[in-house]
Amino acid sequence: MSLKRTLFEPEHELFRESVRAFVAKEVLPRREQHRADRLIDRETWKKAGELGFLGLGVPAQYGGSDIDDFRFNAVLNEELSRIGVAYGSSFGIQVDIIAPYLLRLTTEEQKERWLPGFCSGDIVTAIGMTEPEAGSDLGALKTTAVRNGDGWIVNGSKTFITNGGNADLIVTAARTGGGPKGRGITLFGIEAGMEGFSRGRVLEKVGQHEADTAELFFEDVHVPDELVIGELDGGFKHMMEHLAQERMGSAITNVAHARAALDITLQYAKDRMAFRRPIGSFQHNRFLLADLVTRLDVTQAYVDQCTLAHSKGELSPVDAAKAKWWSSDVQGQVVDACVSCTAATATWRSTRSRTRGWTRG
């Protein structure tokens, strides 16, 4: 039994019921197909758009839900992450990460160009930051954009891009100037179908099979000035300004995923028998599960407080980083322990069977 959470109001819980209904009706029946295809199909994206899930925070004039309260984002993230981290990650890229760029940095023309399709699910988005050699170190960014007439010529590549295999719009970081580390970076809205833009393979991963994590390539892609997002050479600053929300999305995903794993393990400990007893009745497992529940409850309370602070505009990037790091560490502890708990049962039963065989022989 976990402590009652105080983060959410009745309207958030009503929204949670809507998300759960969407998950049950539209996502779970397609989950195995998503995993096989390594792709969330467009029908699912568009259904999420119809229900208003993709336009949280977007003004109604652009087709959004006009709800400026990050706690609704948190509810959406929690419910999606409970059925698979990839769902929280893929939809989170759209709703938590890309939305602020399109709302705060774009011109009116860009908003009208992108936001209606963004909210409806007709435009799936990704962020092109991580590179094969640089990782997410913007200071080592090698993708370049060189001035050419009324636009820019972009060359380079990106990797590990969530939604990359299916995205219609990639907010892409490219180096546009020299100067000290981290400076001279500009964001561009690169659209599917642009000449010179191509996708590599959808990457094989240990987990998150529903996500179309892909490689992207830019070979002399001409990007007109009207698709520059934000300030010229201001990309590094823009990305740093949006880190708090990105980190909180990760923290919320971490806790929700760990909670789902623990719930499954708790039920397993009640149902699975060994030596004529539920495995949850063994002292070691009782202590272990109590420890996990406590760790997760403490982490949930901390992440909830950070979520509330962020919804009020009071959360610093440093505090968001703390939440992301701590929740990531606890998630690993919980999931590893849950696997160990269930694996130990199989070992016990196998050992007992072998011992009986030896005794009879």
Rank of each mutant, 00 (worst) to 15 (best):
G128Q: 09
T159M: 01
R31L: 00
V293E: 08
E79G: 13
Q333I: 04
S281W: 02
Y268F: 08
T307C: 14
M273G: 07
K46F: 02
N285I: 12
R82C: 04
V19Y: 01
R277C: 03
I185Q: 06
E78L: 08
Q283N: 00
E17S: 11
V202E: 14
G200D: 11
L115N: 09
F72P: 05
F160Q: 15
D41R: 12
A337H: 07
L80W: 03
R354E: 09
S340E: 01
R286A: 03
G361E: 15
V19K: 05
L315S: 11
Y101D: 07
L266P: 05
N285D: 00
W325S: 14
L105M: 10
H242Y: 01
R5F: 01
L3G: 09
E195V: 13
R259P: 00
A74Y: 03
L266G: 01
L115W: 04
D233A: 06
K324P: 03
G84W: 01
T159K: 10
F197C: 06
V146P: 07
E9A: 14
I170T: 07
S316G: 01
F118Y: 15
T213M: 14
S90H: 10
R295F: 06
C119E: 06
L28S: 15
L187M: 13
H310P: 06
T213G: 03
I40Y: 10
V223A: 09
G178Q: 09
A320P: 06
F53K: 06
F70M: 04
S65K: 12
E79N: 10
V330G: 08
G230H: 09
E131M: 02
F275E: 02
T162E: 03
A337D: 03
S340P: 01
G84P: 11
G361P: 11
N285R: 07
E13S: 05
E219N: 12
T162A: 15
T106M: 11
M239P: 14
H284F: 12
D150F: 01
A60M: 13
N166G: 00
L28R: 15
A244S: 13
L169V: 04
V171R: 11
R247T: 01
I185H: 12
D297K: 07
F91Y: 05
C341K: 00
A167C: 09
N77E: 10
G88E: 02
S340Q: 08
W152L: 00
D233P: 14
